[in-house]
């Protein structure tokens, strides 16, 4: 009983902290983006202001929208992504719900939030939102393939190379970095998997060049075109959270090293140091994997993005899979 209570409390506290960090990172993203464009950029706390403002604005439900889906979708979307953080070990802090879930569940949670957004788009009854929702669906179908390949390959590799623990659980990967287990072919394969997973990130978080479903200049913000006020704020949170969540998962899978123990820290300090180090890694990944990419490229068209994920990224992921299998055989 007390266990459940502590988990509940610590979970809530953690999620709150994560929410703040995710929004802050969104601010960093915008600032870095602006600086790279030789602009001064917004204050770093800008996303906080935006979200708070949106919460006190009027919440309009279009007359042609299906109200309960329209209002429920943002809530579901944001909850689903928040849930992801319950399964991600942060530094030496074990995941709150470690026993209950694994990588497959995380992938599903991401998909669930995307589906919620699609449902919201379809429910808003605007042709632009409709197109946006269709695009999001197509995009989802495209990036799920490389994502599935990466996740299953990693789990298979972990299982076959005899790493202790549940093969699909993130704690397994964190406890024993795969880079150390693999041979040179395996390292190559892991690198390929890493790159293909990073390629999925912009699509998951809806940023250029994969912001096809929300393209402002094409279909007027698409999916979220009809949303305002509180609902829009929740979608903004969803995007920020997805960004951090995706990067957190990548960090757990590929860069699970901790700093605390090598500094000789113990107890609470170890937890704090590792936690901070974990989020530092997430930030770095976010800046290099999302912000730089979105500064350097334009937007894909939907079929170009599909092709990109099916052929290039999918191919790379497959190559990674083959290399890792060869490594296992060798």
């Amino acid at each position: 009983m007390t266990d459940i209570l502590t988990r509940l409390l610590s979970g809530t506290a953690l999620l709150f902290l994560v929410l703040l960090l995710a929004i802050l990172y969104d601010g960093v993203d915008r600032l870095v983006h602006a600086r790279m464009q030789r602009r001064l950029g917004p204050p770093i706390l800008q996303p906080f202001y935006d979200v708070m403002k949106l919460f006190v604005k009027e919440n309009i439900v279009p007359r042609r929208a299906i109200a309960w889906v329209f209002n429920g979708a943002p809530l579901l979307a944001v909850t689903a992504v928040l849930m992801v953080f319950l399964y991600v070990p942060m530094g030496s802090l074990p995941p709150i719900l470690s026993t209950g879930g694994d990588v497959i569940l995380i992938v599903y949670l991401f998909a669930l939030s995307a589906v919620a957004m699609v449902a919201g788009g379809f429910a808003s009854g605007s042709p632009y939102a409709n197109i946006g929702a269709q695009r999001e669906m197509v995009l989802m179908m495209s990036y799920e393939v490389p994502l599935a390949i990466v996740v299953t390959t990693l789990a298979y590799f972990a299982y076959r190379s005899g790493i202790p623990g549940e093969p699909f659980n993130l704690t397994t990967f964190v406890a024993m970095p795969l880079w150390g287990v693999a041979g040179w072919m395996g390292v190559l394969g892991l690198a390929a998997l890493f790159v293909s997973l990073m390629a999925v990130v912009p699509a998951e978080v809806g940023k250029v060049p994969m912001d096809i479903a929300e393209a402002k200049t094409e279909i007027l913000e698409g999916l979220i075109c009809e949303y305002s006020g509180r609902n829009l704020a929740m979608f903004k949170l969803t995007f920020a959270l997805r960004n951090s969540a995706m990067c957190a998962v990548v960090v757990s899978l590929f860069f699970p090293w901790n700093i605390g123990s090598s500094l000789g820290l113990t107890g609470a300090w170890l937890l704090v140091a590792d936690f901070l180090f974990f989020w530092l890694k997430v930030l770095l990944l976010q800046v290099f994997g999302v912000t730089l990419i979105r500064t350097a490229f334009g937007r894909f068209k939907i079929w170009q993005a599909s092709q990109f994920y099916w052929v290039q990224v999918g191919g790379l992921a497959l190559a990674g899979m083959i290399l890792l299998s060869l490594d296992l055989l060798a």
């Binding site: 602009r39 001064l40 604005k57 309009i60 402002k216 007027l220 913000e221 949303y227 305002s228």
Partner: peptide, 21 residues
């Protein structure tokens, strides 16, 4: 644009009137 950059005051142009202040 960079020279005047209103985003430094937290302003931005949005694509849908529903998002606007």
């Amino acid at each position: 644009t960079p020279r005047y950059d209103i985003e430094r005051f937290g302003m931005k142009l949005v694509g849908s009137p529903r998002h606007a202040d």
